[in-house]
Write a protein that binds this DNA or RNA. Structure first.
Lengths: 338, 338
DNA sequence: CTGTTAGCGCCTTCAG
DNA sequence: CTGAAGGCGCTAACAG
């Protein structure tokens, strides 16, 4: 019962009185084997319950046909939809995907990169943790010639390719949208300012205020580390403001959604005329009150793009492809109608 | 620049004029190497930019210290929290986790199992796709003596361990709760009846109706395949019912959340006195209207439990441990207060 | 404590 | 079209 079936190509070869190289070729569907012997081999392999050992195969070929993906958390809709896009593109090209989460910790991110490299993945797609400030830890990947592409949250390093949103423009457009509706007292739920994307969103917000002659008030910027608690704090801060606000631009969905949940729990109703624009496409944002308009960033699209960039680099490793940065435009979308 | 650094233990050994086995031992921190030579080796390895090849190591050891996890979708809160629990438990025992999603497709699930086995993972934790009706495809894992544990969605096969919810009891309690509030016209959002868990939840619902002398009406059972469209359909069906209902027991969060979103978009307000009990711990369920009470199933706890069961089986592979089934009790939780 | 030897399972030259 | 031989990088006996 504990058969521990460990049939190898040699076992098959022995049974068939042929050489293991022929078996190997047959199993790889090489054109240099007669269809007839191929059939014999395949059948025997099946009978004996042969299962290829990819460790050995990959070791020999020095290639795994696998790419690693590291995101902060798979539970965020943006990231899981990006992963869907990556898998789609990778699958088409015959690549497997290993999904990993850094849980926003640099230490974990480092470990994951090391493990992926040690397992000889052909490439890595990465959206950095909130603790990550440079690409130092990717040297190990570079050293092994492992291709790397960033998406969304990136390191400012010309050596790597990126797939990004135009976050500045998004922040700008979001704020413009609010102002065009007559809002002038606009709170900004910011994200961790260690990350370029949140810096840029905030910069866009400020640019729009400036353009419209509205003074920037630091006390209207609510910082967040993307934890639920920060969202609750945002909700509380809203209640403590010494004056009425009429708009919110949220650069992160955790803050927006959790703050609204919190206020709802407290049975606090916003004045009907407040507007929120969020930077998120989390579906649950569609049920929050008051109505939310979002800067839509297509995770799937970014993922697909990142994967094809990466695979392109992998295929042309010898050609020393130069890194490329793709910037996508997010667009305003109304998510619910109440 | 394209250094393609491929330093092996032999290179280090050559530089140091020693044997590669000593290098191997040093790098594995074996007690049978002088601290002094260890230091020399470690330093040299570092200098030369050595990076272990786990493919080779794992091939030789016939062990990867890795477990594979297959879930239908990582984006569902229940599954991503289960994964968190698995990673936690696995990490403690020094195991790595590979996350995979079947996207509810049997074909993908089969492929994933094959790839995981081919990559010689030490064990697999699995929550089956909605298309999966038996454990046939796990024979390949069994053949290689790969440990397998199911959680939540399982196959009825005595050969494998399971970590399950008491779904029947949950469905029963949920319905009892509604009835105790005076509801008698209770709709059931069911899940795919191919899966035991949804059968059991429905059976619990029926049992409670029966116990309270309420006739079971098939037209009050809304089936769902867990797609957004099904949620919308549930919403539409609610509107078309020829009589008033006063309670809903939802066995799946997709239907509950999407239906409520849909009704909200249509600007349809439920009568204040309707009650919903959902079988979900998706946080976004906390913002849905009307107030939702849930049968809480702790993903994290199930994940931890599944991982420790699996690791136990892996460690005692030689002892032919007999499969175990753990059943957890979900409990009613009020998620918001409006 | 260190060296020697052998081989994990596969693929890929190179011959024939 | 098939066989023989060697080695991917590492570890695990077995010696000494």
């Amino acid at each position: 019962m504990t058969s521990q079936n460990n049939v190898t190509i040699h076992d098959i070869a022995k049974e068939l009185q042929i050489n293991s190289s022929t078996v190997s070729r047959a199993l790889n569907n090489s054109s240099r084997v007669t269809q007839k012997t191929k059939n014999r081999i395949l059948e025997k392999a099946n009978d004996m319950g042969y299962q290829r050992n990819l460790l050995a195969s990959n070791l020999r070929k020095n290639k795994t046909n696998t790419i690693g993906v590291i995101v902060p958390r798979i539970s965020r809709y943006f990231f899981s939809s990006a992963i869907a896009g990556i898998e789609e593109a990778a699958y088409e090209m015959g690549y497997r995907v290993i999904i990993c989460q850094s849980l926003e910790q640099l230490e974990r991110e480092k470990n994951l990169i090391e493990t992926l490299v040690a397992n000889r993945v052909d490439g890595i797609i990465l959206s950095i943790s909130m603790e990550t400030v440079n690409s130092e830890h990717l040297k190990k990947a570079k050293a092994k010639d492992t291709a790397v592409v960033f998406f969304d949250r990136h390191c400012d390093d010309k050596a790597y390719s990126n797939v990004l949103n135009d976050d500045f423009q998004g922040g700008f457009d979001a704020t413009e949208h609010l102002i065009s509706q007559g809002r002038r007292n606009i709170v900004h739920f910011a994200g961790p300012q260690t990350l370029k994307i949140y810096q840029n969103r905030q910069a866009g917000y400020r640019k729009s205020l400036e353009k419209n002659g509205i003074a920037f008030r630091p006390e209207l910027v609510f910082n967040s580390k993307l934890m639920e608690q920060d969202g609750i704090d945002c909700g509380k801060k809203l209640l403590k403001l010494p004056f009425e606000i009429d708009g919110i631009f949220s650069a992160n969905d955790v803050a927006a959604i959790t703050a609204m949940q919190y206020l709802k729990k407290q049975n606090i109703k916003f004045p009907k005329n407040i507007s929120i624009v969020g930077f998120s496409n989390e579906p649950s944002s569609a049920v929050i009150e008051p109505a939310l308009t979002t800067m839509d960033q297509s995770g799937r699209e970014m993922g697909q793009k990142a994967a094809s960039l990466l695979l392109h680099e992998i295929k042309n490793k010898s050609l020393e492809i130069k890194p490329e940065t793709v910037i996508l435009k997010p667009s305003l979308i109304k998510r619910n109608s109440s």
